[in-house]
Design a binder for these strands. Structure first.
Length: 509
RNA sequence: GGCGCGUUGGUCAAGGGGUUAAGACGCCUCCCUUUCACGGAGGAAUCACGGGUUCGAUUCCCGUACGUGCUACCA
C-alpha cells in the first residue's frame, strides 16, 4: 500500500496562469510539502481546439518563479507518466468501453445538428439550457434506443460517436468535501455528460478520474467551478475503481475581481495584472502583463495568494513559503469567494521588499535598473542604494525612480519648487558651498552637513531654505533619503558637478 | 429557469449562543521628518433581511434576498 500523499495540478494549456490557478497550485503544493508527499503537474491538453503553443512551458516557468517546482511533470517525468493527457489517449477508451459494457454508459451517435435540434425543441423560458439527460435520452440516437445489431453496424462503419455516462434515475449522490463537508446532488438533475469525444479524446470528466487513479492521487484540490460536476466524478470512481480509492476532494473558493468574477480573458481591464507572468498569446500577439513584470516579488505573490481565503487564526499576515508549509491547513480555508484587492497586494510586496535582504534584492533590482537603461558597474554602490531606498519602494520597479539619481545626474529639475526659492543670495551660497566641498578631504555625511550649515550661518540664510534646493540639485525632485547621505554616496566630484550644473540651470528659470 | 455553493466594516478577515465584535489593507487626523517614504499614536466604518429555538442570537434552524459557479463532443 502506498500511503504517501500525492496531489496534482492539472492545467489546460490554453493561455496565461491566473490568480486562481496559482492559488490552486499553491494549496496543492503546501499540502504536499506539509505531508511529505509528491506534487505532480499533469497537463490537460485533450482540447485540441483551444491548445496554445508554448502555454505548457509558460505554466512551468510560472511555477518555477513562484518556487513551486513539481516533483513530477512532463519536463521531469516520474514513474507514472505520461504526464500529458494527449499522450495517454489510448488508455481512456478501454475504461469508457468497460462502462458501456457494464451498463453505466452508452454510445451516442447524435450529430451536432441532432443535439442542436433537441435543444431548440425543448428550450423554453423556463428551461433555457436543455440537457441531454434521463428525460430525453430515450428520444435520441444512442445504444439505449438502437438495437444491438444497429449499434454494431454503426460502429463497424466508423460512424462518429461519443460515449456518455448514463446517470441513474433516482439516486442521491453525496460526498465529503474537505472544505464544504457534505455535498449532495440528485442524479436525475445531472445530465449524461460526454465521457469520450468523437475524436477519441476523453473529456475532463473521464480523464481526471482515470488519471487520478493511475497516478495514485490521494488529494485533489480544484476550483469551486468544478463542484457541480463532482457527482459525475464520484459516480465514475464508484463504477470504475471503487469509492474507497477516490481522492479526498477540496473545492477551493473562487477569487473575484472588483465587480464580479475575475475573468482570465480581460487581464488589462482591471488596471492590475491577473497573470503570474507576462503572457503573449501566440495567435494574436497580445501581451497580458504579469505580476512578475509588474514588479512583484514571488515571495509576496504567493504570500498574498495564500492568505486570500486562508489564515492561520492568528494575526500574522506575512508568511514565507516555509512558514506556509508549516502552518497551512485545509480546515482553515474559507468557504466564500474572496475579492482580490490590488492595493493590499501592493502592501504585501512593500512588506516583502522591506523584509528581504539587500543580497536577495540585488539581482532583481539590478535587472530593473538595467532594463531602464542604467548601467551598473559598481556593485557596492548598488548595495548601498538598495539599503537606502528599499523602505520607500512598493514595487521592484520603484527602485528606478527612487534610485536612479545615485547613478545618473538629473536631467530635469522640479522647477516649480525651485523658482520661488531661487535668488542671487542662494546662487552665491551654492557657489561657495561647491568650492568648500571640493576642498574637503573627508567627504562624510557629518562634514558635508557641517560645511552646509556653516556657510548658511555665514551668509545668514536659514538652512531649511537651502536644503530643498540642494536636494533638487542632486536628485532633480523632492524625493529620496537624506540629502547629505545622497551627497556622500555619489561622492565629492559628482556632488560639486551637480551643484554647478544646477546653478546655471536655476539661473535661467 | 434548474441545480450547486456562499453571505461579519469599502476590501481581506478573527470570532462563534452572553465580547467594548480582534487584526490587516484603504481612507482621515496627529506625531516624527525642514523632501518623499518608513515608523508611531488615534479616528470613522461591519454581523444581508424576515421568522423561529432560547432567559439571551452575529453565532443554531427555516425561509427570503443577494452574490457566484455549473447547466458544451471547454477545462
Amino acid at each position: 500500500m502506498n500511503n504517501k500523499v500525492r496531489v496534482r495540478f492539472a492545467p489546460s494549456p490554453t493561455g496565461g496562469l491566473h490568480l486562481g490557478g496559482v492559488r490552486t497550485v499553491l494549496y496543492n503544493y503546501l499540502f504536499a510539502r506539509k505531508h511529505g508527499g509528491d506534487f505532480v503537474l499533469r497537463i490537460e491538453d485533450t482540447d485540441q481546439t483551444r491548445y496554445v503553443e508554448g502555454a505548457e512551458q509558460y505554466i512551468y516557468d510560472c511555477l518555477k518563479w513562484c518556487g513551486m517546482e513539481p516533483d513530477e511533470s512532463p519536463l521531469h517525468p516520474g514513474e507514472m507518466g505520461p504526464y500529458r493527457q494527449s499522450e495517454r489517449k489510448a488508455m481512456y477508451r478501454n475504461y469508457a468501453e468497460q462502462l458501456v459494457n457494464e451498463g453505466f454508459a452508452y454510445y451516442a451517435f447524435d450529430t451536432p445538428g441532432d443535439l442542436e435540434k433537441m435543444r431548440n425543441a425543448s428550450r423554453t423560458a423556463e428551461n433555457p439550457s436543455p440537457q441531454y439527460d434521463v428525460k430525453v435520452r430515450m428520444q435520441m440516437k444512442n445504444s439505449l434506443t438502437l438495437t444491438d445489431v444497429e449499434v454494431k453496424k454503426l460502429l463497424a462503419e466508423g460512424t462518429p460517436h461519443v460515449i456518455r455516462i448514463k446517470m441513474p434515475a433516482n439516486e442521491t449522490i453525496s460526498f465529503n468535501d474537505m472544505i464544504h463537508h457534505e455535498v449532495s446532488f440528485e442524479s436525475s438533475l445531472v445530465d449524461d455528460k460526454v465521457l469520450l469525444k468523437a475524436d477519441g479524446m476523453p473529456t475532463y470528466h473521464l480523464a481526471v478520474v482515470v488519471d487520478d487513479y493511475l497516478m495514485k492521487i490521494t488529494h485533489a484540490f480544484r476550483g469551486e467551478e468544478w463542484l457541480s460536476s463532482a457527482p459525475v466524478h464520484v459516480l465514475l470512481w464508484k463504477y470504475l475503481f471503487g469509492l474507497d480509492k477516490m481522492p479526498q476532494w477540496a473545492h477551493l473558493p473562487l477569487i473575484l475581481g472588483p465587480n464580479g468574477k475575475l475573468s482570465k480573458r480581460d487581464g488589462a481591464k482591471y488596471g492590475f495584472p491577473v497573470f503570474a507572468m507576462n503572457w503573449t498569446d501566440p495567435k494574436t500577439n497580445e501581451l497580458t502583463e504579469g505580476f512578475k513584470e509588474k514588479g512583484f516579488l514571488p515571495e509576496a505573490f504567493i504570500n498574498l495568494l495564500a492568505v486570500l481565503g486562508w489564515n492561520d487564526g492568528s494575526e500574522q499576515e506575512i508568511f514565507s513559503m516555509d512558514e506556509l508549509i508549516e502552518k497551512f491547513s485545509i480546515d482553515r480555508v474559507h468557504k466564500a469567494g474572496a475579492r482580490f484587492d490590488f492595493e493590499k497586494a501592493r502592501w504585501f510586496n512593500h512588506e516583502w521588499i522591506k523584509k528581504l535582504s539587500v543580497k536577495d534584492l540585488k539581482p532583481k533590482v539590478k535587472d530593473v535598473l538595467e532594463a531602464a537603461g542604467i548601467n551598473i558597474s559598481n556593485e557596492s554602490l548598488l548595495e548601498k542604494v538598495i539599503e537606502l531606498v528599499k523602505d520607500r519602494c512598493t514595487l521592484l520597479t520603484d527602485f528606478y525612480e527612487q534610485g536612479k539619481f545615485f547613478f545618473v545626474a538629473p536631467g530635469l529639475y522640479d522647477e516649480a519648487s525651485v523658482k520661488p526659492k531661487w535668488d542671487d543670495a542662494k546662487k552665491t551660497y551654492f557657489e561657495a558651498l561647491s568650492v568648500k566641498l571640493a576642498a574637503e578631504a573627508n567627504f562624510s555625511v557629518e562634514n558635508i552637513e557641517l560645511i552646509f550649515k556653516n556657510i548658511a550661518a555665514e551668509k545668514n540664510i536659514k538652512p531649511g531654505e537651502l536644503q530643498m534646493l540642494l536636494r533638487v540639485m542632486l536628485v532633480g525632485s523632492k524625493i529620496g533619503p537624506g540629502v547629505f547621505v545622497i551627497s556622500e554616496t555619489i561622492g565629492k566630484e559628482e556632488t560639486t558637478r551637480r551643484i554647478e550644473k544646477a546653478i546655471t540651470i536655476f539661473q535661467s528659470i
